[in-house]
Amino acid sequence: MTPATVPAHAPTDHPAITPARTGILIANLGTPDGYDYWSMRRYLNEFLSDKRVIDYPAWKWQPLLQGIILTKRPFTSGANYKLIWNHDRGESPLMTITRDQTQALRQRATEEWGDRVMVEFCMRYGNPSTAEVVDRMVQAGCRRIVFLPLYPQYAGATSATANDQLFRALMAQKWQPSVRTCDPYFDRPDYVRALADSVRRALGDRRPTKLVASYHGMPKRYLLEGDPYHCQCQKTSRLLQQALDWPDGIIDTTFQSVFGTEEWLRPYTVEHVADLARQGVSDIAVISPAFASDCIETLEEINGEIRESFEHAGGRDFTYIPCLNDDPAHIEVMMGVIRDNIGGWV
C-alpha cells in the first residue's frame, strides 16, 4: 500500500494523507467470542436488543430479556455452540468461514483491481464490529466503500440492520466516505446456479423424495407490514427447482429458528420434516439458501435438532447440504454483485 504523504503545496505541519482507495466490506450476522456464559450473554444481549430483530417496546421487552432470557439462554446457547466450535482456531465456524470468504474475495478483487481496493469483513453483532472495521478502512484511505451484507434475501432484521450499523459507523467519521449498499441477490442466475450445483455435488445422481429449503424464520406480522423476505425466499426456491429441472412438488419451502410466542412464517421446518416422515417420506435433503455461511442455525439446528425430529418420526435418510461458504462459485457471485456496484469507482 502506498504510504501517506503531505499534499504538495501544503504547510509542513499539515497531516499526512493516505492515497484514496475503494473499500469492499462484507458483513455477516455475528458470533460470540466464546461459548462461556459471559461471552454468550454479551452477544445475545446485543442481538436481542436490536429493535430490527425484536420490535417490542423496550419497557415491555427489556425486563423480560435482562431478567429471564439472559439468565438462562446463555447456558443452552453456549452448550450448542460448544458442539460445533472450531477448537483448533478458537472461534465459531461462522467466523472461520467468513474469514475464508474474505480472503478468497480479497484475492479475486486484487487480481481484478490491484491495490486500488481494500477488502474487509465485519459483524453486525460481536467482533469485529462494523464501527471498528469502517474506522480502519477510512484510516487506510478508503474514500468510497461498497457494502455487501451476506444475506441473499432482504429482510429488515438482517440486511436493513446491517445497513443501519454501517450508517451509525459513518456518523463517527470526520471525513465520511461515499458508500453504496448492495441489493439482495436471491434471484441472480449465478447464485441460483451455485445453489443447484451444490445440490448436485451433495446428492450425486440421487434425487430425494423431498428437498426441504429451510430459511431463517421471522414473525408473520413482518410480512404483513411490508417486509419482502417471504416472497424472495419463495422465488429462490422456485428458481432452484427450475435450475435443477425437477418436477413440481419436490422442493418444500419452510422456516426455522422460531422464537417467542407469536406466529412466525410457516411451515416450521422442525415440524414439517416430522410430518413428512409420518406421511411415509423416508428420504429427504435439507438446504439453507438464506445462509451465506454455515453457522449455529445450520450445523447445530438443522443437522442436529431438525435431523432428530425427522428420524424420531420414522424418517431414515437425511442429507444436509452445506451452505455455499467459500466455494469458488459463491465467491464469483459476490464478485458479480460487487462489480454491479463498484462501477466508476475503480
Rank of each mutant, 00 (worst) to 15 (best):
T298P: 08
F259I: 03
F167N: 10
L65P: 06
E308L: 09
A172L: 13
R108P: 07
R193S: 12
Q173C: 05
S293D: 08
D252L: 11
A160S: 06
E305A: 13
W59Q: 03
A172C: 03
I97W: 03
V270T: 03
V146H: 01
M1F: 12
R188F: 12
R188E: 11
W345D: 01
G90P: 06
F186V: 00
G23E: 02
N80I: 11
T261A: 07
K210H: 15
V286K: 01
A313V: 05
D115V: 04
L299S: 00
F121C: 08
W38C: 08
I296K: 00
F75N: 06
L244A: 04
A157E: 00
G260A: 05
S282H: 07
R206M: 10
S293V: 12
F291H: 01
Q279R: 13
R42Y: 08
P7I: 09
V346G: 04
P228C: 09
R206H: 14
A131R: 10
G343S: 14
Y185W: 15
L150I: 09
L64A: 05
C295N: 05
D326I: 02
I338V: 07
S159C: 11
V53H: 04
A8D: 10
Y35L: 03
T18E: 07
G78M: 05
A172F: 13
Q66L: 12
W246I: 00
L203M: 14
M334W: 13
D50G: 06
K210P: 06
A16S: 14
S77I: 08
G343M: 10
H330I: 08
D245K: 15
G260F: 03
Q256Y: 03
A27E: 04
A202M: 10
V333W: 12
Y35E: 01
M1T: 07
D326V: 09
G315V: 04
L25I: 07
R99D: 10
I68M: 11
I331W: 02
L223P: 02
G78P: 08
S39W: 07
W345A: 01
T209A: 12
Q153P: 02
Y43N: 05
E46G: 10
P208H: 07
D205K: 14
C122Q: 00
L44S: 00
H87D: 14
V270Q: 07
V53E: 00
P7C: 11
E311K: 10
L83C: 13
A16R: 10
D227F: 13
H9R: 13
T253V: 11
